[in-house]
């Protein structure tokens, strides 16, 4: 574990990637986050401002909360939650990969965008989801910079990203046009919720949420706080995050039973730390109560048909873990390549 230093998170990431290390890069500050690397390639990232795989899958109704919870209970200690969901037929491999890719790039933006933040590297730590995708850290770093610029091109005011979302009471024009995602955000903005709260509530990517909010701000439809106060103090961390799992520890310890971080439940129960160095930022004590009240009105879209457990389970997934893929999102690429075989 490196001592905590205040540097550009992206620089330390480039360094550990260059050394092909395995571990978790934990970024402090607000919203902060963690980027998990396996032999120098990014396998997952999480941030308090970006819904994780569990939140995306349960908030959309794709997975029932108890299904996700069960996978966490069974797979956290051995870091195979993702594989388990596919093996049990709850998700297809394609869905899992697309969901993990999206969540990783989303959280990486919040973790890596700050020009400087307290950063620590915890070697030998892996994420309980298990390796699903292997992304080139340089591609992620490039994309983070591009996204930051994209937001500033829409409306160059970062207050929008963290301040409580307050729609203006009276539109500035006779006629306004909203997209469906913008409508959803305004309808759920109750004068208390931050952009991160809305992202978790609606099960939408954190970046996509602030992107729409910046567009709304550019259209003059949001009330912005006049003075830029001590914004970070007021950022509510929406939910307790999962903690890391020590890669070297093969078996769960039976004696400390509440090791499972609750991600999808109605209430975050015991966010127990199974790792010696829990890197996830602990939510502020007040966040829990606010979180609960926010969940009194949880938005649940109509539940969609789920695959029957065990149905259409390909033989390969029941085998031993596949070797790490050398290329960027290699598994996904294979699918497209199959489709384009005529070309070769």
């Amino acid at each position: 574990m490196t001592p905590s230093t205040t540097v550009a998170p992206g620089r330390l990431l480039a360094q550990v990637a260059g050394e092909r290390q395995t571990g978790a890069l934990v970024v402090g500050g607000h919203p902060g986050g963690a980027v998990y690397v396996l032999e120098g390639r990014i396998i997952y990232a999480e941030s308090a401002a970006a819904p994780g795989v569990g939140e995306l899958l349960t908030a959309s109704g794709r997975l029932a909360g108890r299904t996700w919870q069960h996978a966490l209970d069974q797979g956290t200690a051995t870091a195979r939650v993702g594989r388990m969901l596919v093996e049990h037929g709850h998700l297809t491999q394609g869905e899992l990969e697309l969901c993990v890719l999206g969540a990783t790039y989303d959280a990486a933006y919040f973790a890596l965008a700050p020009p400087d933040a307290p950063v620590q590297f915890h070697g030998g730590v892996t994420h309980w989801l298990g390796p699903v995708v292997h992304i080139d850290p340089a591609a992620v770093a490039r994309e983070v910079r591009r996204r930051a610029k994209m937001l500033d091109d829409i409306f160059p005011d970062p207050r929008v990203d963290t301040a409580v979302v307050t729609p203006i009471a009276r539109p500035p024009r006779e006629r306004i046009t909203l997209t469906a995602p913008q409508w959803e955000l305004l309808v759920h903005a109750d004068g208390q919720r931050t952009p991160a709260d809305l992202a978790f509530l609606l099960g939408k990517a954190g970046f996509a949420t602030i992107q729409e909010l910046r567009r709304l701000a550019a259209a003059g439809l949001l009330d912005l706080p006049d003075v830029r106060g001590k914004a970070p103090e007021f950022v509510r961390l929406p939910r307790s995050r999962g903690t890391a799992v020590d890669a070297r520890r093969a078996h769960p310890r039976r004696d400390d039973s509440p090791t499972v971080p609750v991600v999808s439940g109605m209430r975050p129960a015991a966010p127990g730390p199974p790792a010696p160095d829990p890197p996830a930022p602990a939510p502020a004590p007040s966040a829990l109560t606010e979180e609960t009240s926010a969940h009194g009105t949880v938005y649940r879209p109509p539940r969609l048909a789920r695959r029957k457990p065990g149905a259409k389970l390909p033989k390969e997934v029941a085998a031993e873990p596949p070797p790490p893929h050398p290329g960027t999102d290699e598994v996904l690429l294979k699918r497209i390549r199959t489709a384009l075989r005529a070309l070769r």
């Binding site: 697309l98 999206g102 994309e143 994209m150 996509a208 996904l332 384009l340 005529a342 070309l343």
Partner: peptide, 25 residues
């Protein structure tokens, strides 16, 4: 399953304009 005449393909996140996977030209 092949697409005759395909030169290249990608999967793009259309909110950010980022290619999450690419192949070919």
């Amino acid at each position: 399953m092949a697409i005759p005449g395909a030169v290249g393909a990608s999967i793009v996140d259309y909110t950010t304009g980022f290619p999450v996977a690419t192949t070919g030209a």
